[in-house]
Design a binder for these strands. Structure first.
Lengths: 252, 252
DNA sequence: TTATTTCGTGCAGATTCGTGCAATATCTGG
DNA sequence: CCAGATATTGCACGAATCTGCACGAAATAA
C-alpha cells in the first residue's frame, strides 16, 4: 500500500467516523503503530487533522455522532461477523453462502486479509469489491431471486469442481433434532453440495434461529464443525447441541 | 507495446483504480521499473498524474475512484440508459457487460419487463434484484477487480454455452480507425466472446468515449449493430462512424 | 501513587528514486 | 541501401524515502 494512499484512507476514515485510533488502524492495515503515528504526525503538520492521545480527530467538528457507531458495533450480528472473520487465515479458500450474516463477516475482514473467496451470491461478491487482496471467484448459474444466490445445474457443475478449506453456511433454522434447515429445496441441495466441497463448515446463528425449523433439511448439526452464537445466547438453547460433535463459539 | 499505448494504459488504470504501483505495473507489462518510472515522470510533467513514492495517484483527489465514476455525467448516462432499455423486448435473452452505462439500462427498465438477463457482473445482478419478472443468469469466474466482472477460463467456458439476442457491450474507447477498445486484455477477450455469442451487439457511448482509444482492442466499429450516443454529441465525431455499417442512435 | 499505554527520537535495513551510460531499435536524409 | 541522428530501454550506483525496532519520556488510567 502506498504511503499517500494510506494517508488518504486515514483522512477518509476520519471524515466518516469522526475519529481514528492509531492502534486499531495499525492492526487493520497490518503495519506498525510507528508508521501510523508518523502519518498522523505528518498530516497534523499539514493541518489536515488534530492529534490526540491514542489517535486523531478532525480539525472541524464532525456531524457523525460517535455514540451511534459504538452501539452499532455492539450489535449482535456484528459480533457474529467479527467472530466469523477471525476464523479466516491468510491463504485459505473460503466459501461464502448468501445472507446478511455472512455479509457481516465481509464487513469485519481486516483490510489486509489475503485469501480466496468463493461465492454464489453476487451481493457478497459486490461487498468484496474494496478488498484488494482477496481473490473473488463467483459461481454462476440461475439466480434464485428470493435469496439472491446462483442455483441450478450450472451452479452445481461449478461447485463440483471446487475444494475449499472453510464454508460459511447460511441457514434459517438450527435445531437439535431436525438439524440445519432452510426455506427452499433447491437452495438446500446447493448448500449440501457446498458443504461437501469444503473441509470445514461454520454456521453463524443469531438467537432467533436457535431451535427454529424450516421446511427443507440441509443436514445434521454434527455435520458442521463450528457453530457461532451470540454472546448472550441463552445457555439452555445451546446445551441442546452439546454432544453433537460441533464446537460452539460464543461471539462478543 | 508502444510507449504511447503504455502511457494510455497507465492513465486508464489510474482512473479506474485510483492508484498505480510502479513495481506491480513493471511486472505486469514485463518491463523494467525504470521504464515505468520514466513514464510516470513524463506523465507527471504533463500534469496528468501525481507522483508518489512507489507509484502515482490521480491529480484530482478522488477519494473513491469507482464511486466517482458512478456519479460522473449522470444525466447523459441516464438518457443513454433509457435508450438502451428501449431496445429490450419481452422474451429476449440479453447479455449485460459490466460498467456504469449498462447499470443505467437496468435502472430504466420498465417495472413489468419480462426477459432473461445474462451477466458476468455481480453489480448488474444485484441491480436486477427487484425486477421480479426478469430471469437472471450469472456467469461465474474469477472476479476481475477493477471493473468487477467475472473473467478467466471459467467465465469463458460458461459463455461458450450461451446464445443471446442482444449484448450491451461496455468499452472505454470508440474510435473510427482503432475500433472499440478497453483497458485490460483479459476483459477484451471476454467481451469478444460475448459478442460472438450474441446475435446483435449495442454500445452505449458517452461523449468522452467517442474518439478515445484504450490499449486493448475488442473489435471494429462495424462488428456492432448499434451505437447509442448522447443527444448532444457533436455531429463531426459521429460522422466518422458513418459507412461502417453500424446504426447510430441519438439518446435524449 | 503506581502501572499501563502512548509518544517521540535515533537508528538500521529495505525499498524506491534519480542520473548517467551503454545497447538496441527506429527514423531520416542522402 | 547506408550512415548518422534520435528514441527507447535496461543496468549501475549513490541518494532519498519508508518502515520497524529500541529506549526513554510523557500522558492516561487505576
Amino acid at each position: 500500500m502506498l504511503t499517500s494512499q494510506r494517508k488518504r484512507l486515514i483522512l477518509d476514515r476520519l471524515a466518516r467516523d469522526g475519529q481514528v485510533v492509531a492502534k486499531q488502524l495499525s492492526h487493520e492495515l497490518a503495519l506498525s503503530e510507528d508508521t501510523i503515528r508518523r502519518d498522523l504526525r505528518e498530516l497534523a503538520a499539514e493541518g489536515l487533522l488534530l492529534r490526540v492521545h491514542g489517535g486523531a480527530m478532525p480539525v472541524s467538528p464532525t456531524a457523525v455522532p460517535i455514540a451511534e457507531r459504538r452501539s452499532l458495533s455492539r450489535d449482535a450480528k456484528s459480533a457474529l461477523g467479527k467472530a466469523g472473520a477471525a476464523m479466516i487465515r491468510d491463504g485459505m479458500t473460503v466459501v461464502f453462502d448468501g445472507g446478511t450474516s455472512n455479509l457481516e463477516i465481509i464487513r469485519h475482514l481486516p483490510a489486509q486479509a489475503r485469501f480466496t473467496a468463493i461465492t454464489h451470491s453476487p451481493t457478497i461478491a459486490v461487498a468484496l469489491e474494496d478488498r484488494p487482496d482477496v481473490d473473488v471467484v463467483i459461481i454462476g448459474g440461475k439466480l434464485f431471486r428470493h435469496s439472491m444466490v446462483a442455483t441450478g445445474a450450472l451452479a452445481a457443475e461449478a461447485i463440483a469442481r471446487i475444494r475449499a478449506d472453510l464454508f460459511f453456511l447460511g441457514v434459517t433454522g438450527v435445531h437439535a433434532g431436525e438439524g440445519l434447515t432452510t426455506g427452499d429445496m433447491e437452495e438446500a441441495a446447493i448448500k449440501r453440495q457446498l458443504m461437501s466441497a469444503s473441509a470445514e463448515t461454520a454456521v453463524l446463528a443469531t438467537s432467533d434461529k436457535l431451535g427454529a425449523v424450516s421446511p427443507f433439511r440441509i443436514g445434521g448439526i454434527g455435520e458442521i464443525s463450528t457453530l457461532i452464537v451470540e454472546g448472550e445466547a441463552a445457555e439452555e438453547r445451546i446445551a441442546a447441541f452439546a454432544g453433537s460433535g460441533v464446537s460452539i463459539l460464543r461471539a462478543g
